[in-house]
Simulated assay, not measured.
Amino acid sequence: MIASENKIRKLMSFFVNKLNMTPSMISKNPNLRLLSLEKRIIPRCSVLHLLISKGLVKEETSIVYVFRMTEKRFVDKLVSKYQNEVPDVVSAHQGKIEFQGFPFDLKI
């Protein structure tokens, strides 16, 4: 296995408890298990939550699409684009804003 058992447990816990994903949703996107929770998933969730709460991004945005974006594309589309309107978006991307979860179900 490429990913350790501990990493898989952490990821599954985060996906199920913070993102309200079902195990079947996760199994349909197996590459999610290969992503870094601390470096990619949590910062992107924080950015997405901030932008959705400000009404700049729709709730219907696919979280899997956001996770799969290259770093450059993510920064261009969701961080740099909105950093003047929402300066905290840079802090969220750097992991300085704690992600508490979404108050709604996300589109996968």
Rank of each mutant, 00 (worst) to 15 (best):
G101W: 02
T61W: 07
L37N: 01
P103R: 05
V90G: 04
V64S: 00
V75N: 01
K54Y: 00
S46W: 00
K77W: 12
M25T: 06
N17T: 04
R9F: 15
I63R: 07
D105Y: 12
V79I: 15
I41H: 02
F15R: 11
L78K: 01
N6H: 11
T22N: 14
K96S: 11
R40C: 15
F74C: 05
E98S: 14
M21Q: 05
E59D: 10
I42L: 14
L34E: 13
M25E: 15
T61L: 08
G95M: 10
L35K: 12
F15L: 15
V47Q: 00
R73M: 07
M12R: 10
K77H: 13
M25F: 11
F14E: 01
H49A: 08
M69T: 10
N29M: 07
P30N: 06
F99Y: 12
N17M: 06
L48H: 01
S24D: 11
N17F: 05
S46P: 01
S13V: 05
L78R: 06
K58H: 13
L56F: 08
V90N: 04
T70I: 02
I42N: 05
Q83S: 15
E38S: 15
P43Q: 02
T70V: 07
Y65T: 14
I108C: 11
A3H: 11
K18F: 05
G55P: 06
V66H: 08
Q100W: 00
E98Q: 13
K58W: 12
I41S: 01
L78E: 01
E98P: 02
Y65C: 12
V47F: 00
K18D: 02
L106M: 10
Y82N: 10
F102R: 03
N31K: 13
K58Y: 06
M1N: 15
S62I: 00
K96R: 14
